[in-house]
Amino acid sequence: MNQARSRGAVGPDAADLFWKVLSLTLLLLGAAVMLLPFLWMLLSSFKTPVEIIRTPPTFWPENPTLAAFSTVLTRAPFFTWMRNSLVVAVAVTALVLFTSSLTGYIFAKFDFPGKQALFVLVLVTMMVPFQVVMIPTYLIVARLHLLNTLWALIIPSAVSAFGVYLCKQFIEGIPTDLIEAARIDGAGELRIFLTIIIPLIRPTLAALGIFTFMASWNNYLWPLIAINDEHKMTIPLALAYFTTSHHGARWDLVMAATTLMVIPVIIVFLFFQREFIRGLALTGLKG
């Protein structure tokens, strides 16, 4: 992201001002549209069971109440789901960061027979849609007796082709002399990796880590397949399960649960916004 540029070399005239005002108005209008569903979610979660079924609906809650939140938190195993999601996301992120940086380092700075073939093999897996691998993955995980455990959500996600590729790209930019010098000083291979390579690619790892965490936190299709025990569910799975099974019954509860699920992600995003967007722009990564 570079500094503000001056494009008005000719100087502002009436047409320029018109366009500027018009585009800003449209941008603000669009932003309002983007925020409205979140606002509606938030407002609905504060409504009473009576108010939520009123037709036409009220916009602002008349008697704002936290009842829906307390019902969700006490009647449903919400904290269990939260913990499951957190355990899985933290474990997957830690594993992906470790395996990606290590493998990326090896592919970038070591030479060994069969390296090209292995790297191509890793890259090929990157473009394959999950729907293509989900059936055999399910059968394999079933054979390993991991269905309905959090391991089923962690182990298959412990490696990431994209992560390996990303780390390799960045580690290739590190001068090899640095590594050689450390070797001459008698540093072991693992120590070189941990004390020289890792600190140098920290920004890359930050971006990769945030993406991995978010992807894991938001993942739906694989948990849907691998988990059906209510107490092993992650939050997205539980939300979809309870919304679709108790169809349309209690929107105040559903919106409260949704709010509880969305707020942490939004906070994390606002906190790491810079890394997030830089990482995305840098790599062109798509969700």
Binding site: M34, F38, N218, Y220, P236, L239, V265, I266, F269
Partner: peptide, 8 residues
């Protein structure tokens, strides 16, 4: 913002 919210 919507892209970071869980799609569910």
């Amino acid at each position: 913002l919507p892209t970071v919210a869980p799609i569910v």
